[in-house]
Design a protein around this nucleic acid. Sequence first.
DNA 1: TGCTGCCATTAGCTTATGTTAAAGCGGACG
DNA 2: CGTCCGCTTTAACATAAGCTAATGGCAGCA
Lengths: 248, 248
Amino acid sequence: MRSHGTDGGVAQAVLRRFNALRPLSEEDAAALEHAILEGLLRAGPGEDLIAEGDPVDSVRLVLSGWLFRHKTLEDGRRQIVNFILPGETCDSHAYLLSSIDHSITTATPVAYAEIKRARFEQLMAANSTLAEAFMCETLLNSAIQREWIVNLGRRAAFERVAHLFCEIFERLRPVGLVDGNSCALPVTQTDLADATGLSVVHLNRTIQELRACGLIVLKDRTLTIGDLEALKNAAMYSPGYLRLYQAK
Amino acid sequence: MRSHGTDGGVAQAVLRRFNALRPLSEEDAAALEHAILEGLLRAGPGEDLIAEGDPVDSVRLVLSGWLFRHKTLEDGRRQIVNFILPGETCDSHAYLLSSIDHSITTATPVAYAEIKRARFEQLMAANSTLAEAFMCETLLNSAIQREWIVNLGRRAAFERVAHLFCEIFERLRPVGLVDGNSCALPVTQTDLADATGLSVVHLNRTIQELRACGLIVLKDRTLTIGDLEALKNAAMYSPGYLRLYQAK
DNA sequence: TGCTGCCATTAGCTTATGTTAAAGCGGACG
DNA sequence: CGTCCGCTTTAACATAAGCTAATGGCAGCA
């Protein structure tokens, strides 16, 4: 699964992730990379890629940058429902339901690839390994959402934020975006609050607390985790749901 | 889409639901019903059909009765992550991830059909309409989970419980399990608390409040909704995510 | 150089929700 | 017929988290 010319081509994160979901042959990887290179696009930070109710007619793969899925109530309360990280898919298969039930917004500058529905279906029909990998991508997204439900429903603020940090760290690792015990966390505390169902003020208090316990350092949009095991304990984090063992 | 002999065969709920997801031809419906009749099973109330970490090697369709998906933290806190209602699927495609990340338990006596993976894949390969319908089933489950995240993260107890009741009512309607403005709600208040992320005590308080407002009657495991519009307003319920307009 | 605006932080106070415990209530069953 | 048990309900009290508002830091920009 090397990319064409230099290694670390634009599709690197996607290829790493998909290869972890289903081992890809040279041909599988080439087919995927080819489809990606046909539809390269960029977006600035804070752009809506798609909004609740919009029709869907393509599948998008994130090559670099962060996005989030979110829904907003009539009165403005917003809930971030998941982050979308490099290598992940925006709306795999979503076109089957015609329109989308949530919005997707970029948190940072983003490079992504758009594959039109017809092209995507052709690719799936021609390559069953890729089809399975995309299916896994959808199922994994669903598993992450379930864990978020548990997080919001049953964990206290401290555990909840700790859990989110563990998850992000573990999701960034397999695509090579973890550096030692640090990773980027390019979102505001308001975003983190909307992801954890807390108020900004209380989220901030909670982060202070995590700092005071020596569990994390968060500065300049970089998260550093001193002791990952300790953080996982604090979060009651149990990693099975990400199915990382399948990787490699 | 009539069932074989008498109408209202065991597969009725499933057929209604799938027909709403994708219009089924006579042959589609017959193929699905046939697969169902091959694997009929029953379970009593309070039985675990599958538990977190178990291997998955089949797909199950609920013919009658309620179940719920749930996860439990080390210290016993439990979160119900979704209800599974008649006509719905337990673990569509889940075998692709080998093991499951949550448990599924029956709330009532349940009749269901088990389709083994090989049989299921053969059915999907032979019938693309059914394959799409199953795919929609998976996507819809994911959309419901997203709405639950919003519910837990951003709605206050009163709105939250109201929302759950609206959703259940609207999910039961298309499979014919709503009678006027009433439907069954065959779960304990402890279950409802675990679904809404509240304590049992506060859930009970909240239900009293909903009663006092004349929004609901809940008695003998039956939910009656006086004024559905009023309840939806109280819940800030916006129905798009269930994609019911596709029905019929 | 001094605005302006976004983001993080802190303080003081309010309130929704949790906790513990006990009491009522009806059904199953010996 | 009485007892047990699971479920609901109520009460009294404790606390985590929300809200409003002000402050500080920093970067971009006129």
